[in-house]
């Protein structure tokens, strides 16, 4: 594994020049090689602020951001970064292929090599047939593919993609993430902001949840799921008897489902079972409601 890293240390991020305009407070995150990190959070939480600060478009209000992606002092660091902002970064005067070739050219490839890389990236993003079209003659989703192709053609070691699946169909999103996964396994740093939690759950290794001006969670996806799982629910179907006494003695909150079943938190399940056993109550059926990343995200986003 290489020694590349992107680190944020005690960074206060935002727009403007003073601490009054803070969007994200006291941010400490390490982005390391071999990892896909997903930045998630509600609209306006600061995902793009975080990404724009990482790439140096937005200076941190205080704190530090460190970036190391190359040992070659003669090569600008950003040449090794594939960066797609949320907004279309496009030259509207030129064609699809001329937009794509800009990526490898800027990353130091020769014209011949850049042509080759562009063709391959356009094929990968399924826009090769559109290569001679002007940019304003293609759809929004295709424009998004153009800018992703431009960055893929750079053959970067770091991918920073802000909402890359916006405008992409399910098949293209899946294909892109599969590719990012192979790059990550090969040692690339991959940072993605996304609202597509299904794909994030499937491919991300780390998750950074932001909201209320802070990082609410920063860790492995498995830890995030585990943390969320503590809040999972148990649905109990009583066979007979009076459960109201058991409920009173064992759980703090409960719900009744439409079919009369009892829904309690998993954390109180053990106590509930002990009390039910003592009272000789019989349970017909127990089902665990496993929470998806989406459920956990919704729970945690609402937490203060």
């Amino acid at each position: 594994m290489n020694e590349n890293f992107i680190k944020l240390k005690k960074a206060n991020l935002g727009y403007g020049h003073d601490e009054k305009h803070i969007v994200l407070n006291d941010i400490n995150i390490d982005f390391l090689p071999g990892t896909i990190t997903a930045i998630v959070g509600p609209n306006g939480a600061g995902k793009s602020t975080l990404i724009n600060s990482i790439v140096g478009v937005l200076p941190p209000l205080s704190g530090k951001i460190e970036f190391k992606v190359t040992n070659d002092l003669n090569q600008p660091n950003f040449n090794k970064v594939g960066f797609c902002p949320q907004v279309p970064l496009i030259d509207w005067f030129t064609s699809v292929k001329n937009n794509v070739i800009l990526g490898p050219l800027l990353s130091g490839k020769t014209l011949k090599k850049s042509h080759k890389l562009s063709i391959s990236a356009m094929k990968q993003m399924q826009i090769y047939d559109l290569r001679n079209r002007p940019m304003d003659h293609i759809s929004g989703g295709q424009q998004q593919r153009v800018q992703i192709a431009r960055e893929l053609a750079k053959n970067p070691d770091v991918f920073i993609l802000d909402e890359p699946t916006t405008g992409l169909d399910v098949y293209s999103s899946e294909k892109l993430f599969k590719f990012l996964k192979t790059k990550s396994i090969a040692g690339s740093i991959v940072i993605i902001s996304s609202h597509d939690l299904t794909i994030v759950e499937e491919y991300a290794d780390k998750i950074v949840l932001i909201g209320n001006n802070k990082v609410k969670f920063n860790g492995l996806m498995s830890e995030f799921i585990q943390k969320g799982a503590r809040n999972k629910l148990v649905e109990i179907t009583p066979k007979s008897g009076n459960f109201s006494q058991v409920v009173k003695q064992s759980v703090s909150t409960f719900k009744e489902s439409d079919n009369g079943n009892l829904i309690i938190n998993f954390s109180e399940f053990e106590k509930f079972m002990n009390v039910a056993e003592k009272n000789n109550e019989v349970i017909d059926y127990i089902s665990m409601q496993q929470k998806s990343l989406r459920d956990i995200y919704l729970d945690m986003s609402l937490e203060k």
Partner: peptide, 18 residues
């Protein structure tokens, strides 16, 4: 040309790439 370049972030990308 330079308005398009600046407005759509291409100037930023060019500068950041050296």
């Amino acid at each position: 040309r330079s308005t398009v370049d600046k407005q759509f972030g291409l100037m930023a990308i060019k500068f950041m790439n050296g």
